[in-house]
Amino acid sequence: MLGNLKGLLVTLSSMLRKPVTYQYPKEHKPIENRYMGFPVLMWDSQISEPYCTGCMVCVRYCPTQCMTAVMKDNPLHAEGVSKRRKIVDSFEINFGRCIVCGICVDVCNFDAIEMSHEHELSKYARNDNRSDLTRLLEMGRKYQEETDWKPKTNAKESEEEASS
């Protein structure tokens, strides 16, 4: 009997407490700074081109093979505006397969891919959740504006990965 009363006291005392539930679709839980959403591509606004050179390192190391990338010669390099000799031509991520592990960010040598705060992407068909280059860059720019993102300057200089 005493045990029951003790329990009742606990529930009674919590009546006065502030509710902790977020009424989800209307009200969102604030996202932590480090939150890993889906990977997106970063935009170099100085030269106005993507950071990504299409070197395929992320594609090779992705545990679920959810990405594809194609490389092309950079026209801006020929003009002398950009230092990037190659640039990404097309890039696709299948978010339905992505497991948000962050390995692609770790292996990238050019700070081109980053885990965004994007997480509410639902589609009607199972294989619909694919994003092409334009959309990825768009999401990337949104993330850059939100978080004041800066490239990690010369953090990784292992160029051999890119050339191999």
Binding site: L2, G3, G7, L9, V10
Partner: peptide, 9 residues
């Protein structure tokens, strides 16, 4: 308090 020594539990 809620569970451990509750008689029903």
């Amino acid at each position: 308090k809620l569970l451990s020594f509750n008689e029903i539990f």
